[in-house]
């Protein structure tokens, strides 16, 4: 998407912050929210969805080189409110929200604060809830490449996205993403203590997806989302790590397209 269609990139000011987003395709609106390690140059998952949908994929402000951060932002819920503002500003009332990993947490927050504006909700390896077993991997303790590699089951899939030796620009971008994660999700780390009860109001159909070999977010988080959302279904993608959209883009696109078409 981003790689092949530069003309689809736009920028709009929301809450005083410039938000870059890619908009591509036609159909019902789908908002895709990316991982905490930034928005990769190529997004085959989003491209596949854009065949049948009006796909919007913003870069979280402050996540990556050239992405201005919101100095005032202090929580992931703040980011979710900002995206509510983005959609409203674009005149999009109801949308399908697709959140990837950290972006899944943002999507769940967005859904909880305006349940009626959710067409469908897709959470893929979503952070945001405290696992009852295990922990969400602490990126503060591992190197930039090690953390990104942990998103994949198959090292070759990492290479395909970032290259065997990620560039120094990429390293710097990951450090900037990491700083922004610390700014808004440091404590408790990568989950909310108040989100779970609020999910009960989200009656829209929800699809909770989890990579069977997710080494970043424990499977229990997916189980909790599926239990807390009244109308949710849980799907596990076999032979796949945390970054399902990057490691198994076609499989995920199929799942999501079928789900939206139901």
């Amino acid at each position: 998407m981003a790689g092949g269609c530069d003309e689809y990139w736009r920028e709009v000011s929301v809450a005083g912050v410039p938000v870059r987003y890619c908009r591509c395709g036609a159909g019902s609106p789908v908002l895709i929210l990316h991982h905490d390690i930034g928005c990769p140059d190529r997004a085959p998952f989003a491209e596949a969805l854009s065949v049948n949908h009006d796909v919007l994929m913003p870069v979280h402000p402050g996540f990556g080189l050239g992405s201005e951060r919101a100095e005032w932002m202090r929580s992931v819920r703040d980011l979710a409110v900002l995206y509510r503002g983005l959609l409203a500003g674009l005149g999009i009332g109801r949308a399908t929200l697709v959140g990837l990993g950290f972006g899944g947490w943002v999507a769940a927050e967005m859904a909880s604060m305006a349940p009626a504006d959710v067409d469908r909700l897709v959470l893929v390896g979503a952070m945001g809830l405290q696992p009852r077993e295990g922990f969400i991997l602490d990126q503060a303790l591992v190197g930039y490449i090690d953390y990104a590699e942990a998103f994949f089951k198959d090292p070759a899939a990492f290479d395909a996205v970032y290259g065997r030796e990620p560039t120094n620009d990429q390293l710097e971008a990951w450090d900037i993403c990491r700083e922004m994660c610390f700014r808004i999700a440091w404590k408790p780390y990568m989950y909310s203590q108040t989100l779970a009860p609020l999910l009960g109001s989200v009656t829209a159909p929800a699809l909770v997806v989890h990579g069977a070999d997710d080494g970043v977010v424990p499977a229990d988080c997916a189980a909790q989302y599926a239990a807390a959302l009244p109308n949710a279904r849980l799907e596990t993608v076999a032979d796949c790590g945390h970054a399902v959209a990057l490691e198994r883009p076609e499989a995920l696109a199929r799942l999501v397209q079928d789900f939206i078409g139901e």
Partner: peptide, 27 residues
């Protein structure tokens, strides 16, 4: 120590960011 322990993201001046990420990756 691992470099990301001694220089966690956001701890150091942004002017030093490039040098530290390259150091952290052993470059």
């Amino acid at each position: 120590a691992h470099p990301v322990w001694s220089t966690p993201s956001g701890y150091s001046s942004p002017r030093n960011r490039r040098a530290f990420v390259e150091f952290a990756a052993g470059r």
